[in-house]
């Protein structure tokens, strides 16, 4: 449980940082003249929390095979896209502009999601390198 909370918290903060970046790029591309108040600072946090919701439901204690884990990640990413797009655009009339914005947001969510997984993997790679080095020392000391 503790490890899962740590993982979710790590992913949340990486997501928030990347959502900030995505909002900047999407805003510049789609609505460069849009003006915001200070409340805009809370949006990445809200989207970060919304993005975590599928993880709370999909993540379980079951140990998955690599193939199952890949399928789970894809399912979780799709759910995240649906939840965020629904949160942002639900109730709005289906105009051409809204469709383009929604597609841009969906693409951004996919990119952010992939980057979160990639950054998490790179952090784990560092841990794996340290573990392997420690393991080599351990094996040398123990002398099979």
């Amino acid at each position: 449980m503790k490890e899962r909370i740590k993982t979710l918290a790590g992913n949340f903060f990486i997501s928030v940082t990347l959502i900030n970046l995505a909002m900047l790029i999407l805003g510049k591309l789609l609505r460069p003249d849009q003006q915001f108040g200070y409340e805009v600072f809370v949006y990445p946090l809200i989207y970060g929390i919304i993005g975590m919701i599928p993880a709370l439901f999909v993540n379980g204690n079951k140990e998955l095979t690599l193939k199952q884990a890949v399928i789970k990640e894809i399912a979780q990413m799709t759910m995240t896209v649906v939840v965020i797009v629904a949160f942002m655009f639900a109730g709005q009339p289906l105009t051409h502009e809204v469709v383009i914005s929604a597609a841009g947001v969906a693409l951004s969510v996919v990119i952010v999601y992939c980057l979160v997984v990639l950054i998490g993997w790179l952090i784990d790679l560092k841990t794996a390198v340290v573990l392997t080095e420690d393991l080599k020392h351990f094996q040398e000391e123990s002398r099979e």
């Binding site: 140990e63 998955l64 690599l66 884990a69 990640e73 998490g120 393991l135 123990s142």
Partner: peptide, 24 residues
């Protein structure tokens, strides 16, 4: 190393990251 496996540390060649915060 998991709910279902006990490994001999002397028999591991290397460790690498897998998906979802796990390692192989």
């Amino acid at each position: 190393i998991s709910k279902a496996v006990i490994v001999n540390l002397m028999k591991i060649s290397y460790i690498k990251p897998a998906l979802n915060g796990r390692f192989l």
